[in-house]
Nucleic acid binder design. Structure first.
Lengths: 339, 339
DNA sequence: CTGAAAGCGCTTACAG
DNA sequence: CTGAAAGCGCTTACAG
């Protein structure tokens, strides 16, 4: 392999001069710089990442801890991963992808061995076992997902409580007085998926404040169970005029359920989902929805993480918890209830 | 950070002895080994990955080059990624995930800088620009997807030609004599997605051999266009009794199309898709399908890659092209055509 | 504006 | 069975 020593020799300078010429960390005569650059091109030199990491204590790699659970809708996770990956690359970082079931152990492995300069955790649970490992690690970390205890961590998430209130209020203003909310499966909640009950509780509270009847249930994450559930709900609550979905699988199943019942939105039923625009386009979901903004959240997490990685002052600043305000993307699936 | 020097001092031995005690590469007295292990635990030592990589020229990291195109169904790619990631971890390797649009440049970057010991390329095109970079790299690589020229590369893919023949023959044996095949969008073909025409051409050939009429078309990759296309096809070819789908989006759209037309499989129409079982479960697709086996292909690629990485002899062995025989998963969506 | 040297934290021949 | 030393390929104070 061609080393910086080879480049230095070819350019007729010392290794340190070659290094400085490439990094630009001290002034180099134009002529020498040219000779070094020529040698780099001629020899096809690229710095050895391991050697550089050893010398600088920087790897330019960020760990991405993804977590796939059987009962969650995997395609939704992909959006977050791509947001993080793209944002990291723009800032000069590569991504070490970790998908192990035992996330805490994997996190310890990559931080202890200094494979990464920092870490992003996806799908963070209320009492996430990875957090104590992260707090003990020397590298900074950023979370996508709001845990019960945020101390010492930078946290980014959709404001699910506000999302729940927005859904209810939007329907209320249109005149709806009886609604159904389909959340994620109860398993997700039991595992600590706090966003589920954050949205649900806020929606219930807002409904009671507005005098709206809200039937909240946990849905399945797979077909055909979730389709049956939707049918059952519509049978059980014939007075309900609006449907709120915090459940990707339910949203994906709804078009055929409505079609089968001869219903259409918003003429017969108003519908609001909670998913990303990318998701809506992939499955052509015709429902207005609270944008879950996976790419935006991924970018925010990376930006804050890189700030902490690269600046010693930023490292000491107080940690942030940023809840993105929900945005309702109007796809014309809500209207005044049928009279 | 705690180094092997700290461990050595705490154990009262030299650094080399500490290193050997941990690697087991030479015999160490039980007592010394114990002292070293105790010191490791007490101090919480983990070897620095960069330093080890520099000393051994091994990073224990494999690069995973994923490629997301606007007009392809992203969730399908995730399955391959997870297969590769899980298999790599079982063999002791971590995954560097690369999602850049310019795959050839990204590949050069991670191989030139020796960030990885080897590389897996996903979604390989007929004339993939990444291949020349890979051939020039010092690290071995494995492909998932069959390019036009396999020389010097280990290649793993589904046998799409056999898949096309299997689909046709299965229908033929049941008595079908007129079929429709919906392939991926034409864009995918133009970009070099050879698997599309490999399946399609083989299906056409087999059909003509059997005296079966086969209407082959390129489909869209998104709703609602793909749904409209399916409807058009069924209108245009009322005599067709079987539907073959080499297009995930079409498979996902079909249930509601059939429902809307008051048709059911296999009573009115026999259907065979081509997708993974995981995909079928996520979307509860009730159609028999050729299993695309993304996890299996990912595992095969990783196993071969690691063999080449770890054994100098394996490094020199001839390269392999392994086409997995298609397996038809029966979900009871095919039968004799209606009379 | 440039060079010689030390050091990052490992592993592994070389010696005993 | 163990140790002292060299070396992996960089970067960066230290000196001039």
């Amino acid at each position: 392999m061609v080393t910086i020593g080879d480049v230095a020799r070819a350019a007729g300078v010392s290794r340190s001069t070659a290094s400085y010429a490439l990094s630009g960390k001290r002034t180099i005569s134009a002529e020498v710089r040219q000779r070094v650059n020529d040698a780099v091109v001629e020899l096809g030199y690229t710095a050895n990442a391991g050697a550089r990491a050893l010398a600088t204590s920087k790897t330019m790699v960020i760990g991405l801890l993804a977590q796939f659970h059987e009962d969650e809708f995997a395609p939704a996770m992909l959006q977050y991963m791509l947001g993080v990956s793209d944002a990291a690359r723009e800032l000069g970082y590569d991504i070490l992808l970790v998908t192990e079931a035992d996330g805490a152990r994997a996190l310890g492995r990559i931080t202890d061995s200094r494979m990464v300069d920092g870490v992003v955790l996806l799908n963070v649970a209320e009492d996430d076992p990875r957090l104590s490992t992260l707090r003990a690690a020397p590298q900074p970390g950023a979370l996508v997902g709001l845990p019960g205890n945020c101390s010492g961590l930078d946290v980014f998430d959709l404001d699910f409580e506000e999302a729940g209130r927005t859904m209810v209020d939007h329907m209320y203003r249109l005149g709806h007085r009886e609604l159904i909310l389909v959340s994620q499966p109860e398993h997700v909640v039991e595992r600590g998926g706090a966003y589920v009950w954050r949205l649900q509780n806020a929606a219930l509270e807002q409904a009671s404040l507005r005098g709206v009847r809200l039937h909240a249930v946990f849905g399945d994450s797979k077909q055909p169970a979730v389709g049956r559930l939707l049918n059952d709900l519509l049978d059980t609550h014939p007075e309900a005029t609006g449907l709120l979905l915090n459940n990707e699988a339910a949203a994906a199943a709804l078009p055929s359920v409505l079609h089968a019942r001869g219903l259409s939105a918003p003429a017969d039923l108003s519908v609001i989902g909670r998913y990303s625009d990318e998701f809506a386009r992939t499955f052509s979901l015709p429902f207005s929805s609270i944008e879950s903004a996976p790419d935006r959240l991924g970018r925010m997490a990376i930006r804050q993480l890189v700030r902490r990685i690269e600046s010693p002052e930023a490292r000491k600043q107080p940690h942030v918890v940023r809840l993105v305000s929900p945005e309702l993307v109007d796809r014309r699936s809500t209207a005044a209830p049928p009279t």
